[in-house]
């Protein structure tokens, strides 16, 4: 098997994982214009929740995905109503601090409850390798994550483009001032959007639980990558996030092999800084729609 093809397959699948985590973040930023620094910690909470459901209730993680997404929808909407909504007109600094504070509290709360040990969902099926037409060998769990991320993105895009509520959500993003004049309740849209974005994280957590163990700082491990993905793809662009995630997945896989394993993140952070400087709207972002 050609090592390059294997690396590309690994990178693409890793990209699927990143995409799954990033779509919620980019949706929330694109519509509500708040960068949720606690996004990674929500993922961490989701991983623990899946672990508890699997180890205590014997629930299959993939079965847990839907109820977890629903619960996370309400968690997100609640967080928006209770903490973000009162700060919508505040200085952006204050919003950043609020989400940073939530993230810090969640990560350390998890440390208190579960200690720093790794908690893994035992699902050997997901870790088994499957052969892709003889060109590469990848784990089944990764494949599932890859397809779920595409399905979720497709469903979200269809929702935003084809339903009245979806159109209203986009309307709020494009013109906050005019939307209420159409009779759209902007605050309700914000809560719903925050809920959907957080629900995506819940879905991601359940799908990723068989692949990644839960530990208190797992959120910051993923969220920095998610930020890179979202900026690369264009803040607020769902399609951009998926493509950005694939690019970062490939960069990580190839740079880890051809440059140095411990410098792969340096490479994509360099890409991130380069994008911020040269094209702050991202690869697929529309100027003015940022």
């Amino acid at each position: 098997m050609d090592i390059l093809l294997q690396l590309i397959a690994n990178g693409a699948l890793l990209g699927g994982v990143f995409a799954l985590i990033s779509i919620g973040l980019t949706l929330i930023f694109g519509i509500v214009r708040v960068v949720n620094f606690a996004h990674g910690e929500f993922l961490m909470v989701g991983l623990y929740a899946t672990w508890i459901m699997a180890s205590q209730l014997g629930l299959h993680p993939y079965v847990a995905a839907l109820p977890l997404a629903v619960v996370f929808f309400f968690l997100g909407a609640l967080m928006q109503r209770a903490i973000i909504q009162p700060l919508m007109n505040a200085d952006p600094h204050i919003q950043i601090f609020a989400t940073v504070g939530i993230g810090t509290a969640l990560a350390n709360g998890a440390l208190m409850l579960f200690s720093a040990d790794l908690r893994s969902v035992d699902l050997p099926w997901a870790r088994q390798a499957t052969d892709l037409w003889g060109i590469a060998s990848v784990s089944r769990g990764n494949l599932v994550a890859f397809f779920v991320s595409f399905a979720a993105t497709g469903a979200l895009i269809a929702f935003l483009n084809r339903t009245h509520l979806g159109r209203a959500i986009r309307a709020v993003a494009q013109n906050r001032y005019a939307a209420p004049l159409m009779g759209i309740d902007v605050n309700r849209i914000y809560a719903i959007t925050f809920g959907i974005g957080t629900g995506c994280v819940g879905l991601a957590a359940a799908v990723l639980a068989p692949l990644y163990p839960a530990f208190p700082t797992v959120g910051s491990f993923f969220v920095l990558t998610a930020f890179v993905v979202v900026v690369l793809g264009g803040m607020g662009s769902l399609e951009g996030a998926v493509i950005g995630a694939l690019i970062i997945g490939l960069v990580e896989s190839l740079a880890g092999y051809y440059i140095a394993p411990d410098l792969k993140e340096v490479v994509y952070f360099a890409i991130f800084l380069g994008i911020l400087i040269v094209r702050p709207a991202g690869l697929f972002g529309v100027r003015g729609n940022e």
Partner: peptide, 22 residues
């Protein structure tokens, strides 16, 4: 035993301050 408690306190105080006296 309360490993992580200080971080929890920091986070909660921060959210509280931001909401009540930004």
């Amino acid at each position: 035993a309360a490993n992580g408690l200080h971080g929890l306190v920091y986070g909660l105080v921060l959210v509280g301050v931001v909401l009540t006296m930004p």
